[in-house]
Design a protein around this nucleic acid. Structure first.
Lengths: 218, 218
DNA sequence: CGCCGGATGGACTCCAGGGTCCCATTTTCC
DNA sequence: GGAAAATGGGACCCTGGAGTCCATCCGGCG
């Protein structure tokens, strides 16, 4: 592709603070709306209204709706990774994982399980209709899983996890449990399935601890 | 709402063989198209064309698109449950679970992980925009999980599974792993994550077997 | 064999929502 | 201060796609 267009915030064009702020406001509004209604069910007029901007600004900052959505994928991905970095960067012990699990469950319980995972929902909605979005989401999932597997690697290196454990696979399993948990919780409007799913994954990881701290799970 | 309309295939109105066949053709086409493109990205004209019918027939059999979608939720739910009943009804051993896992993985690998689970995708796409669809999907997931937990109960009763195992929770965990696996596989266009996720869940169940058949997982 | 109501074809309506345009205002830079 | 570009407001255009309508066809039944 010799396409000059860059998904990143316009690079060569002069851009002011005000412009950046507007762009940010649009993304923030799109993020909120598309989180609760889904991408396809959210109209540009909704976004325009919620962001207190106008059509011309939407199209000034984004070529079309697809570009806005792609920008949102980046935006949301960055938010999630930033949040997750906070919770996982220093992961060194099993109890750290439990704390991480609790934070996710609590956050989701505030919505009674509704809406699911910002990334997971987009992945389902977009994977079959926008290859570029799909691949960005894939990358984001990979980065997220890496945060987890890095933590597990640290645990293995420090002797907490058995040498024959496979941090990458454990991380993938945990991520799948998380996403599946989000999905079932959303369908049920209830966090319970998400808890069960995460507990299963943690239990599985626990089984690789060098000295199991007591009984398997609850 | 004292609305008399019933979602079920028209009950009182007389209906001919030909009519039934047409209705079926429409659902079948909608099923196919919406599976690969998603519900919202599929138009009624697409369905009309693919089913070799006409607008008047679509609206003869379904009040509007939403009703068609709800009918599809039922239709697809019935298909999945029927298929799953085949694979799970006689589940009595761990190796039966493994066979079940393999069948799902193989089916999904035919698409390189694309499209995900027919029910899971709908759950994500519809849960936030159609309460009725959401609740039907929830019921279907519950029935599906019950097929699994019934099998696990049989295993527990026969002494294969430990008495202190919780078939319902194990089934939920397995379902979450399956759905999360579908989701990640779809984002990756690759079945691998689904395999890892299912293996994790099976490993977890294995840990409740009365006599573990060897080493934990691979 | 003619009648009736369901089944069907397909043209037509209508509007939500994506996308364009033009002019006003503000900022930036010389 | 003023030209040029960025930012902004919002009316307008236009198409896709949902939903309507009616003439015709068919098949079972008296």
């Amino acid at each position: 592709m010799s396409d000059e267009r860059v998904a990143a915030p316009t690079n060569q064009r002069r851009i002011s603070q005000r412009g950046i702020a507007t762009r940010e406001r649009i993304l923030e509004a799109a993020n909120r709306l598309m989180f609760v209604r889904g991408v396809n069910a959210t109209t540009l007029d909704d976004v325009r209204e919620a962001s207190q901007t106008s059509k011309s600004q939407l199209y000034h900052h984004f070529a079309d709706k697809q570009e806005l959505v792609r920008a949102l994928v980046k935006y949301r991905g960055a938010l999630v990774l930033q949040r997750e970095r906070g919770g996982l960067e220093r992961l060194r012990s099993f109890s750290g994982l439990v704390r991480w699990r609790n934070a996710l469950v609590q956050a989701n319980s505030l919505n009674n399980g509704k809406y699911g995972c910002g990334l997971g929902s987009m992945a389902v909605e977009l994977s079959d209709q926008d290859e570029q979005a799909r691949s960005m989401l894939f990358e984001t999932f990979a980065a997220w899983e890496k945060l987890i597997s890095d933590g597990l690697h640290r645990m293995r290196d420090s002797g907490a996890l058995r040498q024959d454990s496979d941090p990458e696979k454990l991380a993938t399993g945990l991520m799948a449990a998380l996403q599946g948990g989000y999905l079932l919780a959303n369908a049920a409007h209830n966090v319970a399935p998400m808890e069960v799913a995460l507990d299963m994954a943690l239990e599985h990881i626990k089984s690789f601890l060098v000295e199991p701290s007591g009984e398997p799970t609850r």
